[in-house]
Amino acid sequence: MNGVINILKPPGMTSHDVVYFIRKELGIKKVGHTGTLDPEAAGVLPICIGKSTKAAQYLTEKTKKYRANIKFGITTDTQDKHGRVIEQLPVPDMDIMTVKELVECFKGRILQTPPIYSAIKHKGKKLYQYALEGQSVDIKNRYIEIYEINIIDKIDKDEFIMDVLCSKGTYIRTLCHDIGLKSGYGAHLSQLIRLESFPFSIDDSLTLEEVSAAAKNNCLQKFIYPPDLFFQEFDRINIKKSAEKSAINGNPIFTPGLEDNIEAYEEGTMVRLYIGDRFIALGVIGYDACYNKNFIKIKTLFT
């Protein structure tokens, strides 16, 4: 079994819990997720199985879309509703237009400081471990990108629902915290659902119960997506059958082993590699100065 399953992670489970569930349910050791969701968050969690676990490193780079509840007036140490309240301020009845104007400055490429309660590692140790031990850590800012941020509804005088389309590495609870600082009232994340992890949508995701049922009925294969689906932005290059062994051994492939001409490609271009209809690897265009010719260097094998 090889490919990616679009899982709907329920709240109350860690991403690793879901990996363990799939591993046990399918009897497969090679299982991995493509980007951690907080335990209390729900939503799309693509799970790679078999040789497609090698695709996880690329899927984490894809854009994500979230639906988040932001509640003003309460600041917590974890930046969500499960943390300890560190400040509480009275909030007037805020209107949607005011909040829409407030979040506008968070669009684009911005600096964000990851929360101390996170799984990011510092000197080989996860940040939340430092937090639990009461230790302070100098956390480095990093650039993220907010492509879209839209206030879509008001559910209370101080609580709103917003949709956020963002780059990898974005902490939505930190975004809520920073919006709260900008407002002057403070804020935290009160609920989070991941709607998309490109190219997957929550509309097509499977619950864990549905995975179990499909596995028992031997029909899970139809819900498993092939790994090359996620690399459609890269051109397809066909390798000759005679060069298959060389490619699988990770050797560079020169023109005699290719069915397609690659001389027009720039050095460093990523491509998809096929033998017949079988996707076997991602490759990178290299350049041999001695012969003034391009070649393909095998980057990641999927066979």
Rank of each mutant, 00 (worst) to 15 (best):
N150F: 02
K62L: 10
Y185D: 12
Y143G: 03
D153G: 02
Q191C: 09
H188T: 04
G186W: 08
S52I: 00
E244H: 06
L102T: 10
F231P: 01
I172R: 08
D138C: 02
I110W: 01
F200V: 05
M97E: 14
I146V: 14
I298R: 08
D77S: 05
Y291F: 06
R272K: 15
M1W: 00
K54M: 07
G134C: 13
I74G: 01
F230H: 02
Q88A: 04
Q129N: 14
T207M: 00
G286Q: 05
K64M: 08
T75P: 03
I7P: 01
G12S: 12
E266V: 09
R67Y: 02
D80N: 12
G268W: 05
H188C: 14
M94Y: 13
I161F: 02
R272A: 12
L273D: 12
Y185E: 13
V211M: 14
S190K: 02
Y225P: 01
H177D: 08
G286E: 05
Y171A: 11
K121C: 13
E87W: 02
Y58V: 06
K222R: 14
T63D: 12
T269G: 01
I161T: 02
L175C: 05
L8G: 02
D93W: 13
N261S: 03
T60V: 15
P10S: 12
M1T: 15
V4D: 00
I161M: 02
S205G: 07
I179T: 04
M162F: 09
Y147A: 08
D228T: 10
D95P: 13
D178L: 05
G27R: 12
L102D: 07
D163K: 04
D204V: 05
I239Q: 09
P115L: 11
A187P: 08
I280T: 09
I96L: 09
I239H: 10
G250E: 09
G283L: 12
K299G: 04
A68H: 08
